[in-house]
Amino acid sequence: IYVNFSQGFSPPSLTAIFRPKPNTNPVEFYTNLNPAYFNNYELGGWASLLKNKIYVDLTWYYMTGLNELLNIRQPDNSFDYQSAGKTLHTGI
């Protein structure tokens, strides 16, 4: 059995920053994008069964994010980068 806590960040990529904003004249870029920050919590364990013939590995994770960058569809069907604010990711 194990427990893990980790923190991380993801800066915006150069292709995200220098992608032209839709419908801007003169062309504008996404120079105001902030990095995304994450806190990750994990609880898991593993076991071997039947004299090491079967292995079981199971992990549950819960990750919160701040400023995660998403590509959001706009009303005119174009896409625009936007910060999602707070996000939550969970899984097994």
Rank of each mutant, 00 (worst) to 15 (best):
G85I: 00
I54K: 02
T59D: 13
K53F: 02
Y62W: 11
Y61W: 05
K51D: 15
T59I: 03
Q82L: 04
N71V: 02
E68F: 00
Y81E: 07
T64Y: 00
L49T: 05
N77F: 10
M63W: 00
R73K: 14
Y61P: 03
Y81N: 07
M63K: 15
S78F: 06
L70G: 12
Q82D: 11
K86C: 03
T87W: 03
V56L: 15
W60Y: 14
D57M: 04
I54Y: 07
Q82A: 14
T59Y: 00
K51N: 15
D57F: 11
T87F: 06
D80Y: 11
Y55S: 12
Y61A: 07
D80C: 08
N52S: 14
G65T: 08
T64L: 08
S78R: 07
G85Q: 09
L88R: 13
S48I: 13
L69Q: 08
Y62S: 08
L49E: 02
Y81M: 12
I54R: 01
A84H: 01
L66H: 09
Y55M: 10
L50S: 09
S48G: 11
Y55H: 09
N71Q: 09
W60Q: 10
Y81H: 07
W60S: 12
K86L: 13
K86V: 09
L88K: 10
L58C: 05
Y62N: 14
K53A: 08
N71D: 13
L70T: 11
S78Y: 04
D57H: 14
G65R: 00
A84V: 03
Y81C: 08
P75L: 12
Q74S: 06
Y81V: 02
L88N: 09
Y62A: 06
S78M: 08
A47C: 10
N52R: 14
L70M: 13
T59K: 15
A47G: 14
D80R: 10
D57G: 00
G85R: 05
Y62R: 14
Q74H: 01
